[in-house]
Structure formats: structure tokens, C-alpha cells
Simulated assay, not measured.
Amino acid sequence: MIEKLSKYIPENAVELVNEILLNHPISIKIVNERATKHGDFKRNINNKFQITINNNLNQYQFLLTLIHEIAHFVTFKQYVRVKPHGIEWKRNFQHLMLPFISPAIFPQNLLPLLANYIKNPKASTGSDVKLTYALKQYDENSGKSFIFELQHGSIFLFKDKTFKKGNKRRTRYECVEMNSKRTYLFNQNAEVETL
């Protein structure tokens, strides 16, 4: 398993990940990009557990997603029925992630953001705009931009529909779909194609 994963994670993280997987053996499948999630943890029909992770993630996002999903597995083994991202999962994620918060594994600019994130981790790293933006800097150029980077009134493409960026509410942007004239709320770190 670790041989397959080693090309997706930072070199200095391989030994730590291998140690975790020896203590918590689970099937890990690397899959094509899914628009709605980076990874997931599930129990299959035959009662076997599996983690899936998108193959298009940069090595730092991949590692963070892997540990996130392993924490679900560890939490399930300990408690069976708890909230998916409740206090039990948060503690397991923190415990598993802490050894990776090192300049030998993550670039210096990510370390304070990761340290802040694991204080109270959320269901998605995407909920932390600063961390998401910093991680995105290590992606291969996808030609996409975050919506918060666009000027007010900019026209953009999202899921084959054309939108115009409007006003910001607390954490989301009002955007008008050009054909229907309906207003949609976009997360500030939604990735869109500029026109």
C-alpha cells in the first residue's frame, strides 16, 4: 500500500504514513477527480472499509485528506456511532496529524495555517479559506481562480453555466446566473473559470 501512496505524498511523510497504516490497516483507492470532495471513508457492502482519495490533489492536500479519512476510520473503530466530524473525530485527526506538522514535510508558509486549522478542524479543509488558498498554490495550473480573487461584476463559468459576481455577504458571494437571472450564493473559495 505505501508504495502506491508514496508518489502522492511528501517524501518525508512516507515513513509516518506507513506506521499509521500498519496500526490501522485499511484499503485505500486513488480515484479520478470528484467535484464535490477530495476523499471519503466508507464501509462497503461486504463490511470492508475503504478510503478513496482524488488523484489530482497536490502532495500536501493529498496528505491532509489521507489523514482526515484515516481519522474517520480510527474513530469508527473506537466508537462506531458518533457524529462524523464530532469531538471524537477531531481528537483523532489532531493526534494523527500532529507529527506531520513539520518543516521537513510541509513548506514553511503552510505550517502556521495547518497549526491553526488542527486546533479545531472542520469537516472540510475548504472551510478554512486561508489554508485552502495556500494549499492551492502548490497545484499545477488548472486555469481556475477562486471567486474571492475576481473583481465585482466579473463574468465566470461554473459547471457549464455563466455567472456574474455580485456583493459579498458574510462569507459568501451573491452571483447571478446569466440565463435564468437567479441569484446563487458561492463559497468565497469556490474555484471558477474566468471569461
Rank of each mutant, 00 (worst) to 15 (best):
M1W: 00
L5D: 05
S6W: 04
K7Y: 07
Y8F: 15
I9K: 01
E11W: 00
A13E: 01
A13L: 07
V14F: 05
V14N: 04
E15T: 11
L16D: 06
V17L: 05
L22R: 15
N23T: 04
K29C: 09
I30G: 03
N32I: 05
E33P: 06
A35M: 12
A35P: 00
A35G: 15
T36K: 14
T36R: 13
T36C: 11
T36V: 07
K37T: 11
K37S: 13
H38T: 05
G39S: 08
G39Y: 01
F41I: 04
K42N: 11
K42T: 10
N44M: 14
N47V: 04
I51K: 02
T52H: 04
T52W: 01
I53Q: 01
N54S: 15
L57Q: 03
Y60N: 03
F62W: 05
F62L: 07
F62T: 01
L64V: 09
L64C: 07
T65Q: 04
I67W: 00
H68N: 08
H72I: 07
F73N: 01
V74A: 08
V74I: 13
F76W: 15
Q78G: 10
Y79W: 10
Y79G: 08
V82Q: 11
P84N: 13
P84A: 12
H85T: 06
K90L: 05
K90F: 03
F93E: 03
L96T: 02
L98I: 08
P99I: 09
S102K: 07
P103Y: 04
P103R: 08
Q108R: 09
Q108F: 10
N109M: 06
P112I: 07
A115P: 03
N116M: 10
K119C: 07
K119V: 13
K119Q: 15
G126F: 05
D128L: 01
L131C: 05
L131I: 04
L131A: 03
Y133P: 02
A134K: 07
L135S: 01
L135C: 04
K136T: 12
K136D: 15
Y138K: 06
D139C: 06
E140M: 09
G143Q: 10
F146K: 02
I147E: 03
I147W: 03
H152V: 07
L157Q: 12
L157E: 14
K161D: 09
T162V: 14
F163H: 02
N167F: 09
R169W: 00
R169G: 12
R170M: 09
E174Y: 10
N179D: 14
K181C: 05
K181W: 03
R182N: 14
N187H: 15
Q188K: 13
L195H: 10
